[in-house]
Amino acid sequence: MDGDALAKARALEERMRTRARRGEDAAPTIGPAEDGGQNDTDSGRTATTVAVRRKSARMLSDERHRQLDFFTADFVDVPQKNDRHSMEHPLFSLKKRPDTTIRVYEHNNVEITITPSVLGLATIWDKDLLIYATSQLVQGINEGRTDVTNRTVRFTAYDYFVSTNRGTSGAEYESLERTLERLKGTQIKTNIATGGERRKRGFGMIEDWEIVERGRDGRMVAVEITLSKWLYNAVQALEVLTINKQYFRLTGGLEKRLYELARKHCGNQACWAVSEEILFKKSGSTGTLREFRRLVKEIVQADCLPDYRAAYDAKARRVIFYTRDMRRLTAAALKTVGSS
Rank of each mutant, 00 (worst) to 15 (best):
L334H: 13
S275L: 00
D313S: 05
F248C: 06
F75S: 13
N142Q: 12
T72G: 05
L227W: 12
L241D: 12
D40K: 06
E14K: 10
Y105I: 09
T18A: 11
I141S: 08
D307G: 02
T149H: 03
L12V: 03
A51F: 01
T134S: 07
E177Q: 13
Q38G: 05
G170C: 02
G44R: 11
R214K: 15
I114A: 10
R97I: 07
L261G: 10
E197G: 00
I188G: 01
A7W: 02
S135G: 05
M1C: 08
Y132T: 06
S228G: 07
R249V: 03
R201Q: 13
E210M: 08
L137V: 14
D307H: 07
R249H: 11
I206M: 03
H107K: 14
Q136A: 03
R216G: 08
M205T: 10
T226C: 01
W209V: 06
M87C: 11
R182L: 00
N165I: 01
K189R: 14
R17A: 08
D313F: 03
N109D: 14
L129S: 08
D35E: 10
G185P: 10
M326Y: 09
L258W: 07
D77Y: 00
A73I: 07
G140R: 14
K335T: 14
R263A: 09
E88N: 11
Y312V: 11
G338L: 03
Q301S: 13
M205L: 15
G31E: 13
W230V: 08
R294P: 01
S228N: 10
R318A: 15
N244R: 07
E106P: 00
T194S: 09
R318F: 00
R317M: 06
R199Y: 02
I278S: 09
E239D: 14
D159K: 12
E14D: 10
G140Y: 13
L231Y: 13
E14G: 02
L295V: 04
H85R: 13
G144E: 09
K245W: 04
D307R: 09
V78I: 05
E181F: 01
G284F: 00
R64Y: 05
E24C: 03
N109S: 12
E210D: 15
V296M: 02
T336E: 15
G170W: 00
Q139N: 15
K315I: 03
A11F: 05
